[in-house]
Design a protein around this nucleic acid. Structure first.
Lengths: 253, 253
DNA sequence: CGCGAGCTTGATGCCGATCAATGCATGTGG
DNA sequence: CCACATGCATTGATCGGCATCAAGCTCGCG
């Protein structure tokens, strides 16, 4: 894919299953999404030690389970994941969807064990970042430490925004917010602003939004007939982004 | 109200604005709640540099606003706070309640500006921890760095648990979960397991739980007549903790 | 004492859950 | 290639939980 030259990589080569691509973060295409800007050459050398392994995860496969001992974070390199927690009554609830350039496992640091399941929704690749290494590098490279704090803090902000959505928005507003969030993240990756391919089922969206799958379906249908979207199974064409934005401000509920 | 003996209190009183009391964390009564265990004497010296100011915040007063530039975290030393965010439509939603031994402002690190309002529900005291200092100390004291990561991670876990509650629990189960959470935090501070003094209104509880104040009131009444609680305004006596636990597992919704 | 903020309780209505039937794509084996 | 199964999505009918609206109540406080 982006298989660049391979000086020191022969060593690495043998260790991993078989990835001719260098693990070095310094020339990762997603570098800007994971790493702070303004790193010196020396810093970069440190950071290139972060990722030890790259792993393929097939669609439907579990990257880690809630309760598993925590040892590493995972950076999504390609593909798509969901995270879910299990309620005391046994039902699952999706807590997030992660695409390339996002981190998995942040919730495991506190108790040193994972708090959610992480499951691939498509065939995916992740880079494994042993937490002890991240700790070391963070201590040596101040800007990396700050960056890690920012990532953790932003995850808190993200969760609080979801809390707000779940606590105070009506069904259609939630679906609109969900779509707008997807659009925004796709745009940040330079991808189409108007065409979305959903990697998850209606049921998974519903679980994330605190709604039932029928409600998601109805919302899509409604948006369709109002001319906001073109919906065809999992292909969504956004026709009127401003219209979706307007829905967020609906008072009731 | 609970005017206790006033040995040191007179001192505290007089100073509030300029502090003859040692700010030193090393002999703070809440030390175990904020700091990692197993600190060396040298580490403690570093950590004692963390807190620069102690501040009183009167009931109803705002510690910081959403949008304010972020410079410090605040450790609640005494009293009680709520945090709230404002939805795009202008309504507020409570995102958390913080008691002595908990941190405020974690959500500001990411964007370097506060993401929520923090408002005192009682006359309170906070210790201000300039973020730049925390950064420095974290780099010097490895165990402090790890501790900070844990605190951030646990906040993520906390938020995800709230998301689960909002997304999949019925009204009474949410109220039960809320009470059980309060009990647990009070116990962690060595306080009564069965007597709770609510520092917030029904409306604030409702906002936090994604419900209306009438629903909170009805839930309390119901619990009362089922013998789970004794409710008298803001005094709650928990009579049957196991009974509350049972509510969490209710299937529907 | 009387005011007002906060709380309780009841009556009604609506949003989204639930139940159920059908449609539609993909895949599998005969 | 078709028959059939399976998983997912759509759509309709009905139901129930919580919001909403409304009226009194409690208590602290000027």
């Amino acid at each position: 894919m982006l298989g660049r030259g391979a000086r020191a990589n022969d060593v690495v080569e043998s260790v991993m299953k078989k990835y001719p691509i260098p693990l070095a973060c310094s020339n990762c295409a997603l570098r800007d999404l994971f790493l702070p800007v303004g790193l010196s050459r020396g810093d970069m050398d440190e950071i290139d030690q972060l990722v030890t392994t790259r792993r393929s995860v097939k669609r439907g496969e579990v990257l880690f389970h809630a309760g598993d001992p925590f040892a590493s974070l995972f950076a999504v390199r390609s593909g798509f994941f969901k995270t879910q927690v299990t309620a005391p009554d046994g039902r699952d609830q999706v807590t997030g969807f992660q695409m390339a350039g996002e981190l998995l496992g942040l919730d495991g640091i506190g108790q040193q064990q994972h708090h959610c399941d992480a499951i691939a929704l498509e065939d995916s690749q992740v880079c494994e970042i042993p937490y002890v290494r991240l700790d070391e590098v963070s201590r040596k490279v101040a800007v990396m430490q700050q960056h890690l704090h920012k990532i953790l803090s932003r995850e808190i902000v993200r969760d609080q925004n979801v809390m707000m959505m779940l606590g105070s928005m009506r069904a259609e507003a939630r679906v609109a917010a969900f779509l707008l969030n997807l659009i925004q993240r796709l745009q940040a990756r330079g991808l189409s602003a108007s065409t979305i391919l959903l990697h998850m089922t209606r049921e998974e969206i519903g679980s994330y939004l605190g709604l039932k799958l029928e409600t998601i379906s109805r919302a899509f249908s409604r948006f369709h007939q109002e001319g906001l979207l073109k919906v065809k199974q999992r292909d969504i064409q956004v026709l009127d982004e401003a219209g979706l934005h307007r829905l967020l401000n609906e008072k009731p509920c």
